[in-house]
Design a binder for these strands. Structure first.
Lengths: 219, 219
DNA sequence: CCCGGGGCTGGAACGTGTTTCAAAAGCGTG
DNA sequence: CACGCTTTTGAAACACGTTCCAGCCCCGGG
């Protein structure tokens, strides 16, 4: 509890296991992540794998957290631009969505894992949601993503949670094969507008200087 | 395709299978729904079960649809009261949430099933979301739930979808053991307020005018 | 009455997640 | 170096979702 994991060797092993899972999932989705294969590829025995991860879902949620941290890093370096908060938030979700859509098999597998329902897993899923919320709030503010949990106002938390939930449900729906990426972006945009107020617009006067960011007025 | 299922005998069998699954899930959750047991209790062979349902998840999604239809019926008979739209919508979600929380094992199992990611399943999950949206919209309007897909305006659809997504994600989160029912109701209420505007109120007898939940005009 | 075909049954078989365990390998300590 | 300890290994065993199949039942048509 105190030290968040010290042994570099164990760390290294765990990292390799997660890495392998990601590769397999990327290739063939959830079912392709056969634990025997993961263990073999990662060069460990089943026992070791199960010592670090409680279940297949645990493994994939770990992958989700890792991928999300990568996203955070990416956003930290190239934060979504825009003068309006809504513009930036929409921009952020576009980045996040693109990240998911780019590797559908992997994403589907990770999303599915979040639904397992084990309480212990749920905590790790919560970590993922925390990361997301933090990124959303920082896009909202137009500030860089800060590492610390910094002070988030109640309003920010409310809006962040709401949008995060909408996006997550949208991803779940996409994972099933329902929503197309275009639809996702669209619905995300209208959701942001609904919550943050009209502002977004960005396309009022003859496509002034700022019509970048989001795509055209759809239809 | 044309006739949506005619044979009463087959229907009866399918019904019994789903019924059995619900009972087992209610008792012991997802893992307790052992297909061998389901088949035995329902008095059919595995082959028959698999003839009607493609997978365990399929079975549980069917259960979800059934339960949701029951909810719809209930809402049709005793619709959420309230003069304000937001009041009614919040009321509806309270009913829906209570329905889920009342049988946690079953609910968790059904929710988990929605995340399987099979495209065919996804269609059935979509049916569930449609039902939910319809109920939300009717609470919004203060009209009874109509059977037909009736005309839903764009705005209604937007708001309905958004709130449905928020609730669904909230349920997913609850299923993991995270959110308490109280928290759920609370977050659902603030979400409705965020989307529908200030109004809600209803629960402020006196206790001063402020503390009205929603936040001020965004800094 | 016999036939043919579709669904159902019973049960075996297979794959994969998960558990278990005895033996081997590391590794710090005396 | 020998001793204990933890961890890892390798492999087997188990459970359960899923698939398969041979034989049976039922029912409508000759």
């Amino acid at each position: 509890m105190s030290a968040p994991n010290a042994d570099p060797i164990l760390e290294e092993r765990a990292r390799r296991i997660v890495e392998t899972s990601i590769e397999l999932a990327e290739r063939g989705g959830f079912e392709a992540v056969r634990l025997r294969d993961v263990a073999a590829h990662a060069g460990v025995a089943m026992g070791t794998l199960y010592r670090r991860f409680r279940s297949k879902e645990d493994l994939l949620v770990a992958a989700l957290e890792q991928e999300t941290r990568t996203l955070a890093q990416r956003v930290r370096q190239r934060p979504p631009k825009g003068s309006e908060a809504s513009e930036r938030v929409v921009g952020f979700f576009e980045i996040a969505t693109r990240g998911m859509v780019r590797r559908p098999n992997l994403s589907r597998a990770m999303l599915r894992a979040t639904a397992a329902g084990e309480p212990i897993l749920a905590e790790k899923v919560e970590v993922f949601h925390d990361l997301m919320r933090r990124m959303i709030v920082s896009a909202l503010r137009g500030e860089p993503v800060e590492g610390a949990a910094g002070g988030i106002s109640d309003d920010e938390r409310r809006v962040g949670d709401l949008l995060n939930r909408v996006w997550f449900a949208l991803m779940m729906s996409w994972a099933g094969g329902g929503q197309s990426p275009g639809k996702i972006g669209e619905e995300m945009r209208t959701s942001v507008e609904l919550v943050l107020g009209r502002p977004v617009q960005k396309a009022i006067p003859r496509t002034g200087a700022m019509e970048r960011v989001v795509q055209q007025p759809e239809k």
